[in-house]
Amino acid sequence: MSTAAPEAVAGARTGLAGALVVPATIFVAIGLLGPIAILFRYSLNQFIPGQFMVDGLTIENYVKFFTDPYYINVLVRTVRVAVICTLACLIMGFPLAYVIARTQSRFKNLLVMLIVLPLFVGNAVRAAGWMTVFGNRGAFNASLMGLGLIDQPIEIMFTETAVLIGIIAVNLPFMVLTLQSVIEGIPRNVEEAAFSLGAGPSAMFRRVLWPLALPGILAGTILTFILAMNAYATPVLLGGPKFQMMGPLVYGQFAQQNNWPFGGAISFILMTATILLTVAAHLIVQRRYR
C-alpha cells in the first residue's frame, strides 16, 4: 500500500553504516584478494631446482602445464569427473529436494538434519565410509561374493568409479539443500494450476517446475561443480596416488616439490577453468531458457 520506497530511517547516518560494514569488507578484501594477487605474482616467478624460487616475469609455468600431456590429462580428467558428478547430483538431488520441499510431515526437520549432518561431518570421514564399502573384503564385494554372484572381488578402490561415487555423495547434500529452498519458494498452487489445465506430471515438470526452479538449479549446479573441480580428500583417499586430479596436484607441488611458482600456476589454472566453465554453463542455460 505504501507508495514510499524503503528508506533509511530518519536519523540513520551513513557514517554509522560505514563503520559497520568497513571492518568486514577490509578483512575479506585483504584476506582474499591480496593473497590471490600474490599467488598470481608467484606463478610468474621461476623455479630453479636447488635454488628454490627466483624472482622473474615469465609465463613458462603456464607453458609447462599446457605442453605436458600429463598435466593436460589431469585437467581433462578433473573436468570430466566434475561434469559427471554435477549431472548425477542434479538428477539424484531433484526428487529428494522436491519431496522435502513439499512434505507436510512432521519429520521434515529430521530429513533436513539427516542431509546437513553428512555435510558437517567432513569429506575425510565420508571417504572412510566408502573405503569400508569398496575394499576387496569390504561390504560391497563381501555381499556379492556371499550371494555367489562373483568369485573374485571387483576392483573398485582406487578407480575413477570410486572417486565419482565419493564426490557425488559429498556434493549431493549441497545440491539438495539449494534446490529445496528454491522449490519451497514456488507456490504449490502453480503446480495445481498446471494440472487443472490438463498438464500431466511430466509436462508440469517441464513447463512449470523446471523453469521456475531454474535459478536454484543453476546455483546448485555451480556450487557442486566448483566443489567437484576442487575435490581433494575424496580423490586422494578413494583414487589413490595414481589417480591424479587438480586439487592433489596443486598440493603436491607445494608440499612435496616445493615448486611454488608452478603450484601457483596450476592453482590459477584450476580457478580460471572453474570460473570459465561456470560462466559458460550459465550462458548456455540463459540462452536456452530466457
Binding site: M1, S2, T3, A4, E7, V9, A10
Partner: peptide, 14 residues
Amino acid sequence: CGKTTTLRMVAGFV
C-alpha cells in the same frame, strides 16, 4: 495517492 506517505511523514519515518 500519497496518503500513507503523508502519514509516515507525520510519524517521522519519511
